Structure formats: structure tokens, C-alpha cells
Amino acid sequence: FDAFAPDDQPEMWSIENFKKLFNALAPNGALVTYSAKGLVKQNLRQAGFNVERLQGPPGKRHMVRAWKTPDH
């Protein structure tokens, strides 16, 4: 998931949008983004995802992986 930054395009990072993505994913499906902003992680959790912060690539400190557990 690599929309524009949350400050530039907030509707792409909304709970409602993440719920749509969550419902479209198969169990164990994952979403990865370079945005590690607190609001993004919070909205992913509220949409039902498990969320973890990962080491980012060169030039980026962190990134986020969110996944849908098999029991959903």
C-alpha cells in the first residue's frame, strides 16, 4: 500500500479504507507500507489488522507490515 503521505491524502489512510482492504484480503494476507506514522498504525489496528513496525530500506527508518490472521 503506497498512497501519498497521510498528510497529503488522508482519505487513503482512513479506517474505512483499511476495513475495505482487510475484507478483501484472504486469511494470512498482508499489507506493507513505508508509512510508519502513528495514525496509520492505529487505523490499521482499528480495521482489524495485526500491525508490526519493521526496519526500513536504506534512507527510510521504518516501515509497517499489517496482516489478517487466519481466524478472520
Rank of each mutant, 00 (worst) to 15 (best):
4 F>L: 13
33 T>K: 05
61 R>P: 04
4 F>C: 09
58 P>V: 03
12 M>Q: 13
3 A>C: 09
32 V>E: 10
7 D>N: 09
49 F>L: 00
33 T>I: 06
41 K>M: 15
20 K>G: 02
2 D>H: 04
36 A>L: 08
29 G>Y: 04
11 E>R: 09
72 H>C: 09
36 A>H: 05
64 V>K: 06
66 A>I: 01
24 A>E: 07
28 N>Y: 02
58 P>Q: 00
41 K>V: 10
45 R>C: 06
4 F>K: 10
34 Y>P: 06
22 F>R: 00
66 A>R: 06
27 P>F: 01
55 Q>R: 15
19 K>Q: 14
3 A>R: 09
10 P>S: 00
7 D>H: 12
33 T>D: 06
63 M>S: 15
14 S>E: 04
72 H>F: 05
17 N>D: 05
44 L>R: 02
43 N>Y: 08
43 N>M: 05
70 P>D: 04
29 G>R: 05
63 M>L: 14
45 R>H: 05
41 K>I: 09
37 K>C: 14
48 G>S: 03
26 A>C: 13
47 A>I: 05
51 V>H: 13
3 A>H: 07
59 G>T: 03
10 P>I: 00
67 W>A: 05
55 Q>S: 15
39 L>K: 15
7 D>Q: 12
12 M>Y: 08
59 G>Q: 08
66 A>V: 03
32 V>I: 14
62 H>P: 06
49 F>E: 02
49 F>G: 01
44 L>W: 06
36 A>I: 03
70 P>M: 04
17 N>C: 05
50 N>H: 10
31 L>I: 05
47 A>V: 04
10 P>H: 00
20 K>R: 15
27 P>E: 00
62 H>E: 15
52 E>Q: 14
49 F>Q: 03
29 G>V: 01
8 D>I: 09
39 L>N: 12
44 L>D: 01
52 E>I: 13
42 Q>H: 14
34 Y>W: 13
39 L>A: 15
44 L>M: 10
57 P>H: 09
19 K>C: 07
1 F>Y: 13
20 K>C: 01
25 L>I: 12
69 T>G: 03
59 G>W: 07
49 F>H: 02
71 D>V: 04
58 P>H: 03
68 K>F: 00
36 A>E: 07
47 A>D: 02
46 Q>K: 15
15 I>Y: 08
41 K>H: 08
6 P>T: 09
62 H>A: 14
34 Y>A: 07
11 E>D: 12
32 V>A: 15
30 A>I: 09
63 M>I: 13
50 N>Y: 11
67 W>L: 06
66 A>Q: 07
56 G>E: 02
53 R>D: 14
10 P>A: 01
71 D>M: 07
7 D>A: 15
43 N>R: 14
16 E>Q: 15
8 D>F: 08
1 F>R: 12
53 R>G: 15
60 K>N: 10
7 D>F: 08
61 R>H: 12
42 Q>A: 13
16 E>P: 06
33 T>M: 08
48 G>P: 02
32 V>F: 12
50 N>W: 08
28 N>A: 03
62 H>W: 14
4 F>M: 11
14 S>Q: 04
20 K>V: 04
67 W>H: 08
59 G>L: 02
44 L>E: 03
57 P>G: 06
24 A>Q: 12
22 F>V: 01
69 T>A: 08
51 V>T: 11
49 F>V: 00
60 K>D: 10
49 F>P: 02
55 Q>G: 08
